[in-house]
Amino acid sequence: MSLLELKDVSMAYGGKVFALQDINMTVEKGEWLAIMGPSGSGKTTLMNIIGCMDKATSGTVVLDGIDLTDVDHQQLTTLRRDKIGMVFQQFHLIPYLTAVENIMVAQYYHSLPDKQEALAALDRVGLKDRAGHLPSQLSGGEQQRVCIARALINYPVLILADEPTGNLDEANEKLVMNIFHELHDEGHTILTVTHAPEVGREAQRAVIIEHGRIAGSEAKAE
């Protein structure tokens, strides 16, 4: 059974304006899939639905065996907390908390904060020595690595990354993509949303969306 399965998924605002239309796709456990497309193509809407932050107006979305169309708002929150790890283009670290505390926030809402585990997660992305620094004291690449450590802390079944290198320079982009490769090699399932072809090409497979519909897909040549 696929980890994620979308069947005839549509999202219409006001019943008329379709942001997504008849999306059919699957993501297997351990797979790295890129969703690509230009701005306004519906990538973010799709990410919201997969990330349990919104519900499709029609079709079915099954994540780790759970049909997301059948759950209520409260259950969506629980699923988001337990199953998804999110990496944001703008990092979204809380400015008045240190790197390790930002990771512990995710632990706090999931179960219990554990500083040692949070430090281990920072170590995993090579930032243990920056644990006590505020986001403003970290470079963009370091902030994104903290964001990745936060996404991993609760052992999610799916890592959702929205334009993970969108705000990074080339050197940091390479560093972050290396971490994604390592995570993939460890067996993590990753879904990256990007409009940058060079980032999309890093994934095993890419799905291209245009005007709310799947316009094509391409697999990475091994």
């Binding site: 990330g51 932050m53 409260q74 929150t77 629980t78 988001r80 907390r81 337990d82 999110m86 979204h92 809380i94 926030v105 995710a106 809402y109 999931h110 936060r150 609760n154």
Partner: peptide
């Protein structure tokens, strides 16, 4: 707002 949205995205419930 952004911080609240982030906390919710990380799984914070309304009660939190």
């Amino acid at each position: 707002r952004r911080e609240i949205g982030l906390k919710k995205a990380l799984g914070a419930e309304n009660s939190n």
